[in-house]
Amino acid sequence: MFLFLASVSLIALAFILYFILREAVPVFRGATIQELLGPKWRPTYEAAPRYGILPMIGGTLLVTIGSMALAIPLGLAAATFIAEMAPGWLKDIAKTALELLASIPSVVYGFFGLMILSPYIRDSLGLLTGQTALTASLLLAVMALPTIASLAEDALTAVPRSYREASAAMGATHWETTWRVTIPSAFSGLIGAVILGMGRSVGETMAVLMVAGNSPQLTFSFLKSIRTLTSGIALDIAETPSGTTHFHALFFMGVVLLVITLAMNWIAEWFRGRLAKGHLKR
């Protein structure tokens, strides 16, 4: 009985895989794999529909890189400060604030991005529209930051006290201990934290949907409007009749998204698990 209840998460996972694959596989009746990985997404152009999801993969990649360029340094800096330097009371406040930041719904971030950030970017950079990859990257960075910071903080705090003592007893300053002992010891945990944060960025839907502009173009410019895998699905699926190649192509995008995020998750968990084992040996 309890075993059944416990297995529900596995069953749910199996359902996800089964149903999404079931709706995704028929796409091959309407398009070849080369077409699906092509650079043109024109599903509603009836004369010659194209179902290439490359622009969405490119868009996801672009905003993920952009957001991580900001979120990784900020998140790790915040984690290091909170774990190693902040006094007790500040630590409590900071951790609560991180938890609250992480709990803000993505639609609220998206709303903030659309109403405040995107006009600001448009005006300050003199663009026609503020709905760009840059806007989405900034917003995603803010959203991934609490994840990275709090997981990285966990990893740093898990470093045994004896390492720090040994280093302090050698005459190292607090920063030298942090930089030369604590951070290297927590390294795989920090990588795990970063990858999980990255996974958040890849999988985030609403915020990107609201601020990235959603043009399915393959570009490497942060000042252009882009569409990601997630926003691509969210945009089209409500208005696409089920059973069409377009509908199946959207589920195919879901499969690609799922594969990417799950792979990142597993890699991250592997790194985090390695950390736990490394300390346990001691």
Partner: peptide, 25 residues
């Protein structure tokens, strides 16, 4: 271990994919 991995994996599934599941299922 399998259930733990399942729980962790489920936690990492993007929310839009849950939407797809809800739609299909």
């Amino acid at each position: 271990r399998a259930i733990r991995i399942g729980v962790n994996t489920l936690a990492g599934v993007p929310s839009i994919v849950f939407g797809l599941l809800g739609l299909a299922l």
